[in-house]
Design a protein around this nucleic acid. Structure first.
Ligand SMILES: [Mn+2]
Ligand SMILES: [Mn+2]
Length: 298
DNA sequence: GCTGGAA
DNA sequence: TTCCAGCAACGCAGA
DNA sequence: TCTGCG
């Protein structure tokens, strides 16, 4: 495998070239790969750097090397299958990054049981009308409201920066519930927390109808939907990464892009993987209970 | 970033 | 042999 | 069915 275009400028605003992106992924691989392993991947590619054109790619073309694992998944309503790439070592990771991939996206279930997600991710998106720091403050407020509501239900979510503008909550699941069942439980939690702060939170998909409220995006809890795993690079001016943080650390952060490929590694050596409970093994002390009738009918 | 057909 | 146009996703919800 | 959205 040959790494190409190493001197191409990928992040002109901060002077980061492609070699540094490859270097970052190589070094973060021990932390990142447990979150990617056995999950069908989608690639978000910027072959000319972050200011150039971009596209998503989920189907592995014939020119991908034989040694890169792929998994065929039947597309929902079509008569064809998509061959998603899989990553289980740094070689596979670097091959995909060399294609110009900045962000790898994963499904919420692993290939051995695609109908039962082993992680729940709740996407917290601040309103577009607020800028940078203000948007992030509102995201923190929303995240804490969500956390409190979930804790009242016996669930203990973790939090990370998205790397763009908002936050992500994460929770390990024991793979007993289907996507529909997880969505139903999550829907009740969201309805409750929105009722508690209707001027601050919304599930309204239409941007114009959100106003200055924070969008709680639960639509990502669906088969075929993808989420941004921790430690991946985001397509931002400053080469930000999605970084797990402690709940009481949130107030010390200026914005969702507070961690970048330049400072992520020293931090990780200090903190370890704060989202380790969402990598690989399913389970934890959390027990998300579905409606008992649905559970019985499983 | 890679490929196939045109130049 | 070089050049370059075409290509690289898709599910969900609400209207 | 089409559009907005992520
Ligand atoms: Mn988001
Ligand atoms: Mn979102």
């Amino acid at each position: 495998m040959t790494l190409t275009h190493l001197e191409r400028v990928y992040f002109p605003q901060v002077g980061i070239v492609k070699a540094e992106v490859l270097q970052y992924y190589l070094e973060v691989a021990p932390y990142l790969i447990p979150h990617l392993r056995d999950r069908p991947l989608s690639l978000e590619r910027y072959p000319e750097g972050v200011e150039g054109p971009s596209f998503y790619q989920k189907d592995a073309p014939t020119y991908f090397p034989d040694w890169l694992r792929v998994t065929s998944i039947a597309a929902a309503h079509r008569a064809k299958t998509v061959r998603h790439p899989l990553v289980d070592d740094s070689g596979g990771l670097l091959y995909l990054v060399n294609l110009g991939t900045l962000t790898l996206h994963t499904t919420l279930a692993r290939i051995d049981d695609l109908d039962h997600p082993d992680i729940l991710v709740l996407d917290i998106d601040p309103p577009a009308v607020l800028s940078g720091a203000d948007a992030f403050r509102r995201s923190i407020e929303a995240a804490r409201l969500l956390r409190d509501e979930m804790r009242a239900a016996g669930l203990d979510p973790l939090v990370k920066t998205s790397g763009k503008r908002g936050l992500h909550l994460g929770l390990p699941l024991d793979r007993r519930l289907t996507y529909a069942q997880v969505r139903e439980v999550l829907g009740e939690i969201l309805a409750a927390v929105i009722a508690r702060a209707p001027d601050r939170l919304t599930r309204e998909a239409r941007k114009e109808r959100r106003g200055d409220r924070v969008y709680l995006d639960a639509l990502r809890m669906a088969p075929g939907a993808t989420v941004v795993p921790p430690y991946v690079v985001r397509a931002t001016d400053n080469a930000a990464v999605s970084m797990p943080v402690e709940w009481d650390e949130l107030d010390t952060l200026e914005h969702a892009g507070a961690f970048t490929i330049r400072d992520a590694l020293p931090r990780l050596e200090r903190t370890g993987d704060l989202w380790a409970s969402l990598a690989g093994a399913a389970g934890s002390g959390n027990r998300m209970e579905g409606d008992s009738q649905e559970l019985d009918s499983e």
